[in-house]
């Protein structure tokens, strides 16, 4: 460190490299995530750089390093707690945009949810007809051979199912 204070860059780089494991050990008890520890270590290195003129070569270096590391680590915890106290996490906030078109996917998925429930509430023949003809988009002939029901029966069930769904989705208005 003494050489670093006099401007010996190679010595300074060696020193910084050598102290990283020590700094990491000092801050580890206060932070759990490995990437957090690395972030704190980087902050500590920056602080060491800024206050390197305060090191007295006549004194041991470890207490000096440890004091800086602990102090910065606590500062970062506080800053993080302050930020967390002022922010709320709302997942829909990330998907709500000023442009209405951009929100469509969100609205569509909400509408589909309602439709799924409505379909689940149909009678089994109606549900089968809707699934084959409208959701899977099969032809009447294909649907008939797959379900073993007549084309006329399928037509009637689809018609009734759509009527029932319309009623259910519009809250029975029509």
């Amino acid at each position: 460190m003494e050489a670093a204070q006099d401007g010996d860059r190679a010595a300074y780089e060696r020193l910084l490299r050598d102290i990283v494991p020590f700094l990491r050990a000092v801050v580890r008890p206060q932070h759990s995530a490995p990437d957090r520890i690395e972030e704190v270590v980087q902050e500590v290195l920056l602080t060491i750089h800024r206050v390197r003129h305060t090191y007295d070569p006549a004194r041991p270096i470890r207490p000096w390093l440890a004091a800086i590391a602990r102090r910065r680590s606590i500062d970062l915890l506080r800053r993080r707690a302050r930020t967390a106290a002022h922010e709320v996490f709302d997942d829909t906030a990330y998907e709500t945009f000023a442009d209405p078109g951009a929100n469509r996917s969100l609205e569509v998925s909400a509408a589909t949810e309602g439709l799924g429930e409505a379909i689940a509430g149909l009678t089994p023949p109606q549900r089968e007809a809707i699934e084959l003809l409208k959701l899977k988009e099969l032809s009447l002939a294909e649907a008939s051979s797959l379900s073993g029901k007549s084309i006329a029966a399928l037509k009637v069930n689809v018609h009734r199912a759509i009527k029932a769904l319309r009623q259910r989705l519009n809250g029975g208005e029509r």
Binding site: A4, Q5, D6, G7, D8, R9, A10, Y12, E13, L16, R17, V20, Q42, L45, L46, H49, R52, H53, T54, Y55, D56, P57
Partner: peptide, 16 residues
């Protein structure tokens, strides 16, 4: 990389 940058910026300092 940070260590490299700091070392490159290490001007001599006057001890307090």
């Amino acid at each position: 990389r940070l260590i490299g940058r700091l070392a490159a910026a290490a001007e001599p300092v006057r001890r307090l």
